[in-house]
Nucleic acid binder design. Structure first.
Length: 493
RNA sequence: CGGGGUAUAGCGCAGUUGGUAGCGUUCCUGGUUUGGGACCAGGCGGUCGCGUGUUCGAGUCACGCUGCCCCGACCA
């Protein structure tokens, strides 16, 4: 075990391999025995649940309600919106039959050819179509609007190459789908949800993000505008961490969702959709972790404090138990999640390493020595600093420490990102520097041709046109043609 | 769908010119340990990916099939 974990030091050498091993060793997830699918293990799922509950609360504060729509979508629904079907057709899993039967040799099952469906069903890659087919029945009058629905569910996209959390055939996410009476209201909603995603990423995940709007080629299939948050991983690559789409009237028209407005005139409904997925787990891992394993922001850690006793005999353990009971109760009373690990089947050194691997923010260690002195050893996961301090007021200290760590890992991530964002006006320079990662702010002439050329020659893509960036006109880095603004270019996951 | 690998214990691997299955680790039991991933002793665990063939005899040789991994195209 010790030997294996040391391999995590390859973070700087092979980031992808390091990431994969960390996900497995920290007990977050593993590859399933089903192509491209993932098993999320209890510890990984506990983090996801925490993210879910916080996000869900943020949505509800803006009037969003949860609902649930079917997993299976009739094939014909998908083809109603031309761009949408074009975008997803290549990665859809299709249900063609509804029954199996025993084979001729009686040692297995085969698909019963007699049970072929008249119309194939698609396993949802996203739910715009089935939801707008439903909205058609709900929306007759402007009085029914807006409709603000969200669903927590799984979707399936048959990706060629998969990676735990970042890209799997099946993944968990939330997808919000709203319907509005006016264009302005829908656009406002799309932007609002992006703001919520950005706030969640920065405040809770401690992951700084760049907010912006996608170029036409990177846009969601069927959207008029796609807003995005882009995070920078420790290898300098970008990770698209959440998107919010302004869909215009595309789906309203495709599914004939018309309502009578205040002037008694028929009008098509305006739409948005927005989602974040278990990919956020990948962002969390790749933003903060180090060679000792996971580093979790206290706000999302399923377990914030672990207490480990060190003892030579039962009397010592008894004495420590009594001391710790009070601390545990006090911490819990302060809303801090804490575990006292006095299991005697693991040695202290093993526990230390294991809890570090899992990213538990604070570790308290109490031994016979501490009992005598009335002290405790406190270790913080982000800096790995150890400090021996008095047991008096330890609870308040832990509370302050958790807050400080949340700030500290965010600041560390911001500093790292800011140190790797560059303005660049020379394509040759860009080509040589993009290899080392980082975000590049470059002038772009706005054409898909230039965008494609950059991708072809450097594997980098236009991540977004950032909102919060003071823009001045210039000339395109590649073609020298006039440019209205700088765009964010990076290699991405 | 192209190009290249690989398949032997839960995991990681060895297995010589064909002779009947081995190492490390995990796991279980007992003991000694416990302030940074303990040690000793014992034990459980394998129709060698599937099929056919050659042979007295196949993990090993031949042919066929299948799964998986890596590199491309595709993508949150």
């Amino acid at each position: 075990m010790a030997k294996e974990l040391k391999d995590l030091t390859k973070r700087s050498v092979n980031y992808s391999q390091w990431y994969n091993e960390l996900v497995v060793k920290a007990d977050l997830a593993e590859q399933a025995d089903v192509r491209g699918c993932m098993v999320i293990k209890p510890y990984g799922y506990a983090i996801w649940e925490k993210m879910q509950s916080i996000l869900d609360g943020m949505f509800k504060e803006t009037g969003v309600q949860n609902a649930y729509f079917p997993l299976l979508i009739p094939k014909s629904f998908l083809s109603r919106e031309a761009e949408h079907v074009e975008g997803f057709a290549k990665e859809c899993a299709v249900v063609t039959h509804y029954r199996l039967k025993t084979n001729d040799t009686k040692d297995g099952v085969v698909v019963d050819p007699a049970a072929k469906l008249d119309e194939e069903l698609i396993i949802r890659p996203t739910s715009e179509t089935i939801i707008w087919n439903t909205y058609k029945n709900w929306i007759k009058s402007y009085r029914a609007l807006p409709i603000l629905c969200n669903q927590w569910c799984n979707v399936m996209r048959w990706e060629m190459r998969t990676r735990l959390f970042l890209r799997t055939s099946e993944f968990l996410w939330q997808e919000g789908h709203t319907a509005h009476a006016t264009r302005e209201e829908a656009e406002e909603r799309a932007k609002l949800m992006l703001k919520i995603y950005a706030e969640f990423a920065e405040k809770y995940m401690a992951v700084p993000v760049v907010q912006g709007v996608k170029s036409e080629t990177e846009r969601f299939a069927g959207a008029l505008d796609t807003y995005t948050i882009e995070a920078m991983m420790q290898d300098g690559k970008a990770l698209q961490s959440g998107t919010s789409h302004f869909l215009g009237q595309n789906f309203g028209k495709a599914f004939d969702v018309q309502f009578l407005n205040k002037d008694n005139k028929p009008e098509y409904a305006w739409a948005t959709s927005w989602g974040v997925s278990t990919r956020l787990m990948g962002a969390l891992i790749m933003t903060h972790s180090d060679d000792n394993g996971l580093v979790l922001p206290p706000a999302l850690a399923p377990l914030q404090v672990v207490i480990v006793p060190i003892y030579k005999n039962d009397e010592q353990l008894q004495a420590i138990n009594e001391k710790v009971d009070g601390i545990v109760a006090n911490l819990k009373g302060m809303g801090i999640s804490v575990k006292y690990d006095n299991a005697d089947n693991k040695r202290p050194g093993f526990k230390f390493a294991d809890y570090e691997l899992k990213g538990i923010p604070v570790r308290l260690v109490i031994g016979a020595r501490d009992l005598e002195n009335g002290t405790v050893e406190v270790m913080r996961r982000d800096t790995l600093e150890k400090e021996t301090r008095s047991l008096d007021g330890i609870e308040e200290h832990v509370k302050a420490l958790l807050d400080d760590m949340q700030q500290n890992i965010y600041k560390k991530a911001v500093d790292f990102r800011d140190a790797h964002i560059y303005e660049c006006d020379d394509y040759e320079e860009f080509k040589s520097r993009i290899k080392d990662g980082g975000f590049f702010l470059c002038h772009w002439d706005g054409t898909a041709e230039t965008e494609a050329r950059i991708k072809e020659e450097t594997q980098a893509t236009i991540r977004c046109v950032p909102f919060a960036y003071e823009q001045t006109p210039g000339v395109d880095m590649v073609t020298g043609k006039p440019s209205k603004c700088r765009v964010l270019i990076a290699r991405a996951y």
